Lab assay of single mutants.
Amino acid sequence: MDETGKELVLALYDYQEKSPREVTMKKGDILTLLNSTNKDWWKVEVNDRQGFVPAAYVKKL
């Protein structure tokens, strides 16, 4: 969790967005987890953008 109590995830792999609903991340990025109710796609925030990334590409910290 960060200082505001939000849950964080670590990008395990690079991911290039394939639609406007997704976000690009690089391996090693720390992202804010917004929603993990879907087992396949998690909603995150990175670089002031919100979108989805494959759940298998990130790990909760």
Score class of each variant (00 low, 15 high):
Met25Gly: 01
Lys59His: 10
Ala11Glu: 01
Ala55Met: 05
Val9Thr: 02
Thr24Arg: 05
Gly5Glu: 13
Val9His: 03
Asn35Trp: 07
Met1Arg: 10
Val58Cys: 12
Arg49Gly: 04
Tyr13His: 10
Asp29Ile: 04
Gly51Lys: 02
Ala56Phe: 08
Asp2Cys: 14
Lys59Pro: 02
Trp41Thr: 02
Thr37Arg: 09
Pro54Trp: 03
Pro54Gly: 02
Glu22Val: 05
Glu7Phe: 11
Lys39Gly: 09
Leu31Ala: 07
Gly51Glu: 02
Tyr57Ala: 10
Tyr13Leu: 09
Asn38Ile: 05
Lys60Glu: 05
Val46Ser: 15
Asn35Ser: 12
Val46His: 15
Asp2Gly: 15
Trp41Phe: 06
Leu33Val: 06
Trp42His: 02
Glu7Lys: 09
Val53Met: 01
Ile30Phe: 06
Phe52Asp: 04
Ser19His: 11
Thr24Cys: 06
Ile30Val: 10
Gly28Thr: 01
Val23Ser: 02
Lys26Glu: 05
Glu45Thr: 07
Tyr13Asp: 06
Gln16Val: 14
Asn38Arg: 09
Phe52Gly: 01
Lys18Glu: 08
Glu22Arg: 04
Tyr57Val: 05
Val44Thr: 01
Ala55Arg: 12
Arg21Asp: 12
Leu8Ser: 07
Leu8Asp: 04
Glu22Trp: 03
Leu12Thr: 04
Lys39Ala: 12
Met1Asp: 15
Tyr13Ile: 09
Leu12His: 02
Lys43Leu: 15
Pro20Tyr: 09
Gly51Asp: 01
Asn47Lys: 11
Asp40Cys: 12
Glu45Val: 09
Glu45Phe: 06
Gly28His: 05
Ala55Asn: 02
Glu3Thr: 15
Met25Ile: 15
Thr32Pro: 15
Phe52Ser: 03
Asp2Glu: 14
Tyr15Val: 01
Asp48Ala: 11
Val58Ser: 00
Trp41Ala: 02
Lys18Phe: 06
Met1Asn: 12
Leu61Pro: 04
Tyr13Glu: 11
Val46Met: 15
Val44Trp: 01
Lys43Met: 14
Met1Gln: 14
Val9Ile: 08
Arg21Ser: 14
Val9Met: 05
Leu34Ile: 15
Ala11Lys: 00
Ser19Glu: 09
Leu31Asp: 00
Trp42Phe: 07
Asn47Asp: 13
Thr32Asn: 08
Ala56Arg: 15
Leu10Cys: 09
Arg49Leu: 06
Thr24Asn: 06
Thr32Trp: 13
Gln16Arg: 11
Val44Tyr: 00
Met25Lys: 00
Val9Tyr: 10
Gly5Cys: 13
Gly28Tyr: 05
Gly28Ile: 00
Thr4Leu: 13
Val44Ile: 07
Lys27Ser: 07
Tyr13Phe: 14
Leu31Glu: 01
Ile30Asp: 00
Asp40Tyr: 15
Tyr57Gln: 05
Asn35Tyr: 06
Arg21Trp: 15
Ser19Thr: 12
Val46Gln: 15
Val58Ile: 08
Leu34Asn: 02
Met25Glu: 00
Lys43Pro: 01
Thr4Pro: 14
Lys26Ala: 08
Thr37Asn: 13
Gln16Pro: 06
Glu22Cys: 06
Leu8Val: 08
Ala55Ile: 04
Thr4Gln: 13
Asp14His: 06
Trp42Gln: 01
Leu10Val: 15
Lys43Trp: 14
Val44Pro: 00
Gly28Glu: 02
Arg21Leu: 14
Gly51Leu: 04
Asp40Ile: 14
Glu7Ser: 11
Ala56Gln: 11
Val46Cys: 10
Ala11Thr: 03
Trp41Ser: 02
Pro20Thr: 11
Gln50Arg: 13
Trp42Ala: 04
Met1Phe: 13
Tyr57Ser: 09
Gly5Phe: 13
Leu8Lys: 13
Lys6Asp: 08
Met1Leu: 13
Asp48Tyr: 09
Gly5Met: 12
Ile30Trp: 04
Glu17Tyr: 04
Glu3Leu: 14
Trp41Asp: 01
Leu33Phe: 03
Leu8Ile: 08
Lys43Ala: 08
Ala55Pro: 03
Glu45Gln: 15
Asn35Gln: 10
Leu33Tyr: 02
Asp40Trp: 15
Gly28Arg: 02
Arg21Phe: 12
Val44Ser: 00
Gly28Gln: 02
Phe52Asn: 04
Tyr13Trp: 11
Gly51Arg: 02
Glu17Thr: 08
Lys6Glu: 09
Gly51Gln: 02
Glu3Ser: 14
Asn35Asp: 15
Met1His: 13
Asp40Ser: 11
Asp29Gly: 05
Thr32Val: 15
Pro20Lys: 09
Pro54Met: 03
